[in-house]
Design a binder for these strands. Structure first.
Lengths: 249, 249
DNA sequence: CGTTCGCTTGAGCCTTTTCAACCACTGTGG
DNA sequence: CCACAGTGGTTGAAAAGGCTCAAGCGAACG
């Protein structure tokens, strides 16, 4: 059940406590295209926001006046039908991008899944920056294109995969992401990768187009087949990543 | 069944027979951001390509050296699983955009659904144009964002809608589009709108995440409920567009 | 210490798929 | 001109995968 969380972030907005130079996503975010003094200018106009799990970051049809890069945590984007049926359309991880671009009304709900830290810019600031930095537009296009492609991949999952393949696909996505988060850029193929799933069963279901009971049963099935091992409610480990990938279809 | 169509367009490439000024998509395509002599420059570097129904326009993992705006027709983008399961991830209409941007390998197959006419640019030409025309980047971002949003909407359909709602949604999409194609910009709410569906039943199914038998049965059901009327295999009319929208969920 | 929330399990049902047959139409070659 | 094959569309019957409903359990929390 979605509580009526207040939309304002948990803590008050605050000036960036550290300069961008030392930021975790400095190498990969939209800011990665900037150099030298441009980064300093960015530091001046950027501010941070934090959210607790479950809090609403953006409402459907909202017109937020800020955009943000994710510094940490996981955000889910979801759409809802009139009768309440819900579908998560995207999971966002650092250094993904979020917020009101070109004064478009937000076409989804955005909720924090974990503790989330955003690095925000006022829209006016950002758009003037876009003008000065043509490289930034390109980054935006590439980012949108990536997102479009992952959405397409998920459409294949939703349209054509079995329940077991769907769950395997999600777990595969999460191992991959959690590895990337830990190691950095390079994809290392470690054996027996353990990781924590931040989503509750119901959220997995809403992402996979299933019911949560089915998710539970398929997790169990994958466990019985030794493709995954669940060590707790939310703790998984994957003995053989390739086997999981295969199970994902 | 996908024939091994040759990838080359039906007719040889040809210089644009008409100048861009009189082009059907001049007002709405990527070219719409250009003015005056820039349009003339565009006319010089643009060329046209044509495809027959079923022909392959782009192969998965291909790296085409051109990009294109659709001038007429319908294109489907699809992805395929190892075992052959197929999902159409997008339908493209004029003035949609297509091709190899920023030297990314194409992440889908593109096939002509109807006769298709493209207006093409060599990638090098296009990218230099992007540099000169900052407005064009913005157009690209907006276009990608639109596409991303329609993909998200389709994810809701694939994840959460019933078979009947899916079929209704597709038909609703097609009435809307065909009306837009006929009338221009404004959405007129005409009663009893007739239109032709260019997709075969199997393609509808691949777009909707269903089997073609189910598509047939749901079309029949919608017909029995008088939400649509099928006048031929591919000819439909919609007595009440609002009723169809409601059936689409 | 009772309540709530997230999770799990079982049983039966229902929607959609699968499988199989058949029809209408079109183009082709004997 | 007709036989025949191929393609797209339709229908029915049976099977199955996933959903619904109902109950119970453990941990967290006020």
């Amino acid at each position: 059940m979605q509580k009526k969380d207040k939309m304002e972030p948990t803590s008050d907005d605050q000036q960036v406590p550290e300069r961008c130079g030392t930021c975790a996503i400095r190498q990969s975010g939209i800011c990665s295209v900037l150099t030298g003094e441009d980064v300093d200018r960015l530091s001046d106009i950027a501010y941070h926001r934090q959210y607790r799990p479950g809090e609403t970051i953006l409402l459907y049809d909202d017109s937020p006046d800020f955009l943000a890069a994710m510094r940490s945590g996981v955000v889910k984007l979801s759409k809802v039908l009139l009768d309440g049926r819900q579908q998560i359309v995207s999971l966002l991880f650092p250094p993904d991008f979020l917020g009101g671009i070109f004064s478009r009304p937000t076409p989804y709900f955005a909720h924090a899944v974990t503790d989330v830290e955003l690095c925000c810019f006022r829209r006016a600031n950002f758009e003037s920056m876009l003008k000065d930095q043509p490289e930034m537009s390109r980054h935006m296009v590439e980012h949108s294109l990536d997102k479009l492609n992952t959405a397409h991949d998920w459409m294949v999952l939703l349209g054509r995969k079995t329940a077991e393949e769907r769950v395997a696909s999600l777990l595969y996505l999460l191992v991959t992401r959690s590895k990337l988060m830990r190691v950095g850029d390079t994809q290392v193929e470690t054996a027996n990768t353990g990781f924590e799933v931040h989503l509750k069963r119901e959220e997995m279901a809403d992402f996979l187009g299933l019911t949560y009971e089915t998710v539970i049963r398929q997790i169990k099935a994958l466990n019985n087949e030794n493709i995954i091992r669940l060590n707790g409610r939310r703790e998984f480990s994957v003995p053989d990543v390739a086997a999981l990938a295969k199970a994902a279809g």
